[in-house]
Design a protein around this nucleic acid. Structure first.
Lengths: 111, 111
DNA sequence: TTGTATTATCGTACAAAAACGATAAACCAA
DNA sequence: TTGGTTTATCGTTTTTGTACGATAATACAA
């Protein structure tokens, strides 16, 4: 937060940080699991399961959607959400790339 | 933040969210890369590279250390930090586990 | 058209994160 | 011991995140 002097960090670092931020709340992880496990794509079904107000769940869904991790379509008065597989494949790759970098490029630990 | 009603979410969800939160700032990702790439384990060297105040860098280092992602040892007046490989292996596994769950357990997309 | 159900958005309150300067703490060198 | 170097911590300010209730918007049913 604050200024963050975001200009200085690489695009990759900022992208990864943004994705991580979306995953940094247990409610959003729970929502993703719900979407993945069932066809419970309707917002109301998620509200029933989670102990959060409808407006709060809707807010989390919005963030997940803004990040591209889920897709949403309107079905009449209802809204249908589901996992965006392509996005997660990309995200998975980015994380793995970071992990590989961190684990392999160690020239020799000093601790 | 706020209450977060953390009691309701599973331990796995909370753990993953905590790890993600640590990675949710580009400065911390940059610090991890610096530690991995060089033997620049000294706090001062990181301060030189990043456009952040020394106190801010120290704060980020503390968070990384609290999360167990890096190890730190005191060398006289200096502090030496380095990547905790074991922690990253575990983190990598947890993320991969989540990604697999999200990508495989889709019973049939509705969007 | 009127009502009902569902979801999104607005406004607000509070908690947490991020940044910085200043200062304290720790250790080595002279 | 004194002074210099390095890092951690404290105090503060600003920004962001989280949560909720209330309300608006949307579309279907009667």
């Amino acid at each position: 937060m604050a200024s963050a002097k975001t200009e200085v960090f690489t695009q990759e670092e900022q992208d990864l940080a943004s994705f991580a931020k979306v995953l940094s709340h247990p409610a959003r992880i729970a929502i993703l699991k719900i979407l993945a496990a069932q066809n419970a794509c309707i917002c109301g079904q998620i509200v029933e399961v989670l102990p959060l107000a409808q407006s709060t769940v809707s807010q989390h869904l919005k963030e997940l959607k803004n990040a591209g991790l889920i897709k949403g379509t309107i079905e009449g008065p209802k809204s249908c959400y589901c996992i965006n597989r392509e996005a997660f494949e990309k995200l998975n790759q980015e994380f793995n790339s970071l992990f590989q970098t961190l684990q392999t490029e160690i020239a020799g630990n000093c601790c």
